[in-house]
């Protein structure tokens, strides 16, 4: 903790790139927001053809503010890793992207989050529809107490994606194949999903999420409850899935972030400190806090 306090006292590097960004994108339609773009963030938080754009996101739990003015874009086919010490708000931020925070009574989200140019917090947007487009995989594998088939078929069924049983079977098979689980479970689809091993359960949850054909996949520390072999399988899966989906992954493992992600965002005490290409963040971090974290000086 002391280390964190000390790190806080480091001055931000004077030539903040945030200022340059502000100038460069001055002609943008979102210039109202860009006007005082990111006082905290180092690095370019924008991408050319974004799937998701978040501007000036503040999140409050009751009176306590958990996220401070986060601006970040997420591209159409990329893996972006959110890293940072525990309690830095990366999971909270992640849960804003599919409005999972709505289920928490005291949670309040401010700012603008757009999916394909549409504000997802607009009154017209039904979070139920949104969550079908922005899927989520959780830290602990949470298969429903149903059969493997029903676990994957749950999403397509509730969204009425299929009209016939054979169509549903096709979707389930495709999802399980993409999640790399098909060969292991094809003979026992009617057995409970809770009977699988931890790594298989997590891949089942990924299959379940991609069965509804989302555009974005949010992953909240998907490997923290798994052993290294299961982790490697999931990481390979993430790599394959990134050709099709935008993937936002929260992780505590910096090696994992380095292995799977294209870009990395470093959160600290509710603020987005630095964002950039993963190779740059891990080899040449520009903010002293980032450097401290990735070199293991704290966190």
């Amino acid at each position: 903790m002391q280390n964190i306090m000390k790190a806080e006292n480091f001055p931000t590097k004077p030539a903040s790139p945030g200022v340059q960004i502000k100038e460069r994108r001055a002609a943008d339609t979102t210039k109202i927001f860009e006007k005082e773009a990111s006082r905290h963030t180092v690095g370019d938080f924008t991408v050319p053809d974004p799937r998701l754009t978040t501007r000036h996101v503040n999140v409050f739990y009751g009176d306590k503010q958990a996220i401070f003015d986060v601006n970040l874009d997420i591209a159409k086919t990329e893996v972006i890793a959110l890293i940072g010490p525990s309690g830095c708000g990366k999971s909270t931020y992640l849960r804003c992207l599919n409005r999972m925070n709505d289920t928490i009574e005291i949670c309040r989200v401010e700012g603008e989050i757009k999916l394909d140019e549409v504000d997802i917090y607009h009154d017209d947007i039904d979070p139920v529809v949104l969550r079908a487009r922005v899927g989520m995989v959780f830290q602990k594998p949470n298969p429903f107490p149903k059969s493997i088939f029903d676990n994957v078929a749950y999403g397509p069924r509730i969204h009425g994606l299929t009209s016939s049983k054979s169509e549903l079977e096709e979707i389930v098979e495709k999802a399980l194949k993409r999640a790399g689980l098909w060969n292991e479970v094809k003979d026992r689809l009617d057995q409970p999903g809770t009977g699988l091993s931890g790594g298989q359960q997590q891949r089942l949850c990924i299959a379940r999420a991609i069965a509804v054909n989302p555009e974005v996949l949010l992953m909240d520390e998907p490997c923290s409850a798994l052993d290294p072999i299961a982790t490697a399988t999931i990481e390979q899966l993430i790599d394959e899935l990134s050709r099709r989906y935008s993937i936002v992954i929260v992780t505590h493992s910096m090696q994992q972030a380095a292995r799977v992600s294209h870009r990395t965002a470093y959160f600290h005490l509710g603020k987005l400190i630095e964002v950039g290409k993963t190779s740059q963040i891990f080899t040449n971090p520009r903010h002293p806090l980032t450097e401290d974290y990735i070199t293991g000086r704290f966190g």
């Binding site: 289920t103 989520m136 949470n142 298969p143 107490p145 749950y154 509730i158």
Partner: peptide, 19 residues
């Protein structure tokens, strides 16, 4: 976690409760 999983897939509250 089961509730989260269901909501995360875009299920409504009614679907989550009944299913």
């Amino acid at each position: 976690s089961l509730r989260d999983g269901s909501y995360g897939l875009g299920a409504t509250q009614a679907e989550t409760i009944t299913q």
